[in-house]
Design a protein around this nucleic acid. Structure first.
Length: 335
DNA sequence: AAATAAGCCAACCGCGAAACA
DNA sequence: CTGTTTCGCGGTTGGCTTATT
């Protein structure tokens, strides 16, 4: 299978993205929708490889991305899900729709890995670690047990995992920031203009940072790193839906940017994108169903909790079956 | 104040799966 | 059915920032 690497071409730019490039990329996605990345560089004139464009979109420009510090709730979910799924960052990210897989992966590697190690040394066992231990036990006990035994063990481990996750999710009260985030996410699902605004906000923040950094005489390196740093350092206050571009920059960059690109044409594509790449089907259905029936927002934690705690899902919904999360391929020696 | 180390994160790379011809 | 192309994922790296000596 001889595949020509897409980035081997001469003249393909690498490194940090400039605001101009971001705008070109968003403009293209606005018109054509996400996908067909191969054609993007030639159609837009961007001197970037298709991969780079896709990555930039999915990890940075895509609507609905939350940046800044991870909440306790998010942290717990990542730990739980990592224990359940392993390093399936895309799968884990699907349960944290506002976070990208890259973000979660980075956060895991830089924070949680160490934290887990530290806690593992200090604590004998708590809920999180009983889950981990359970799953470790699950994988380590595989080779020496029969399938029937293994299935019983699996069931016990599933129950243990459920209990641990339930406990972890119960730690936060219903008015936690996480729920607020979910509320925001749900709003986005139901309001496509908000989705666009969110993407606009990303660019506006980026432009704001770019302007800010280019006027700064002290740090020349900023201009080359522009977007990354300015948005990476955005604290949680900027993630509450309030564009900080206007509060800081005087002129409404949001408005300026929105005037560059119409709202309507982006709506279908971005909502499609969001539905394609965010929450798992089951959760989307739940959210939609709840919204239609009661017009109320259902916290993701509740949905996830219900999904995990509902005994019936193990029998009725093989697609969402927890057993499918623990890949049977990982234990081929059993069968 | 300067040098060095550690932390952090955006972006790159290679591989495998899915889609397509 | 087979070969090719495209896409998505996870691991890794490069370079910037911050902390420490």
């Amino acid at each position: 299978m001889g595949r020509v690497p897409c980035c081997d071409k001469m003249g393909v730019k690498k490194g940090p993205w400039t605001p101009e490039e971001d705008i070109m990329l968003v403009s293209y996605v606005q018109q054509h929708g996400p996908g067909n990345w191969r054609a993007l560089p030639t159609k837009t004139g961007l001197r970037r490889c298709s991969k780079s464009c896709r990555l930039r979109w999915t990890n940075y420009l895509r609507p609905g991305i939350k940046r800044g510090n991870f909440t306790d709730q998010e942290e717990k979910m990542i730990i739980q899900l990592q224990a359940l799924l392993g390093n399936k960052w895309a799968a884990i990210a699907s349960y944290l729709p506002e976070r990208t897989d890259n973000d979660i992966k980075n956060y895991w590697n830089t924070h949680l890995k160490k934290k887990m190690k530290r806690l593992d040394q200090c604590h004998g066992s708590n809920d999180l670690f009983s889950l981990e231990n359970g799953l470790t036990h699950l994988s380590s006990s595989n080779s020496s047990t029969s399938r029937g035994q293994w299935e019983r063990t699996l069931q016990a481990d599933i129950n243990m995992a459920k209990k641990a996750l339930h406990n972890a999710l119960s730690l936060e009260n219903p008015t936690s920031s996480h729920n607020n985030n979910i509320k925001q996410e749900n709003t986005q699902v139901s309001s496509t203009s908000t989705i666009y605004a969110s993407s606009t906000e990303n660019i506006a923040r980026l432009l704001q940072g770019w302007i800010g950094s280019s006027t700064s005489s002290t740090n020349n390196s900023e201009s080359s790193k522009t977007s990354s740093n300015n948005i990476a350092t955005t604290d949680s206050s900027s993630c509450d839906g309030t564009p900080n571009a206007e509060t800081k920059g005087g002129m409404g960059l949001m408005e300026a940017f929105e005037s560059l690109f119409g709202l309507e044409s982006f709506e279908s594509s971005s909502s499609d994108e969001l539905s394609q790449t965010t929450t798992p089907e089951a959760i989307k259905i739940e959210i939609k169903k709840e919204e239609n029936e009661h017009d109320v927002e259902v916290p993701l934690s509740i949905i996830l909790e219900n999904w995990l705690l509902d005994e019936n899902t193990l029998n009725i919904q093989p697609k969402n079956d927890l057993t499918t999360l623990i890949s049977f391929d990982e234990t081929p020696q059993l069968f």
